[in-house]
Amino acid sequence: MTSEPFGDLIDRCRAAEDDLVRRWRADVAASLRGRISEIELDKELREILDAVLSAVASADGADTRSAAYGEVRALLVDLSRGRALQGFSPRETAISVFALKKAVRDSVGTGPEFTAFSDVIDELGLFTFESYAKTREEVISNQAEQLLELATPVVKLWQGVVALPLVGTLDSARAQVVMEKLLQTLVDTGSEYAIIDITGVPAVDTQVAQHLLKTIVAARLMGAECIISGIRPQIAQTIVALGIEFGDIATKATLADALLLALGRIGVDVTAEMSKRGL
């Protein structure tokens, strides 16, 4: 059974396939402005056209959700995923599909069956856009995760002294990661002093202070001492205004001061250490 709504459109498309792909490619290439090579594009579009024509010619040709469109959907997911990852805009991605409509109209001509074909392309265009958005969402959530890991390096400053330079806003989720990472590093390196540098933290509110205090108390329980450094003047003002008490926790204005304090408590003689290493 051939699908009625499309008439002989499919056969005419098949006959004019080369011309169709050329026109389609020209439209898509214009919108992409040379960021994908013509050969690559040609291959991609030919595959999609072939799959679309086969699907339209099948029994369920009018229903883009049917099994016949499985291959088309897979190709479109690939296309939109690729475009999303390469940083193309939604418009540039959608046009890759919608331009087929114009190519068919110009190459094969319109007719009553063109409306049905146009509907199919619209559906496929929407589908492409949906998977484009989905890929972008994945990219964003991946980046958020990576950021969480990247933004919390624990640096060894001296034998027994580690530093944790905090950069960015400290929310509960991040504070938890930071806390676990710092405490684990203390165990792994056997460090007795940890310097938490908050130069890169844009604002300190009661919640951030609470997280910091918890980390410090936990470190104390494990037998390590924390020093907070990098307190900017405005941050100091906020801390006082909010009535946050750091108690007997040592706080220093700069990382250098904090390191000096830690070295002093350990009892390191820097000059002696340098001459020992021949510096």
Binding site: L183, V187, K214, V217, A218, A219, L221, M222, G223
Partner: peptide, 18 residues
């Protein structure tokens, strides 16, 4: 008290036992 694990320390802090 020596050798407290990070997870244990966090738990005690969350329990409010400093």
């Amino acid at each position: 008290v020596v050798g407290m694990r990070p997870a244990v320390a966090i738990t005690l802090v969350e329990l409010g036992l400093s």
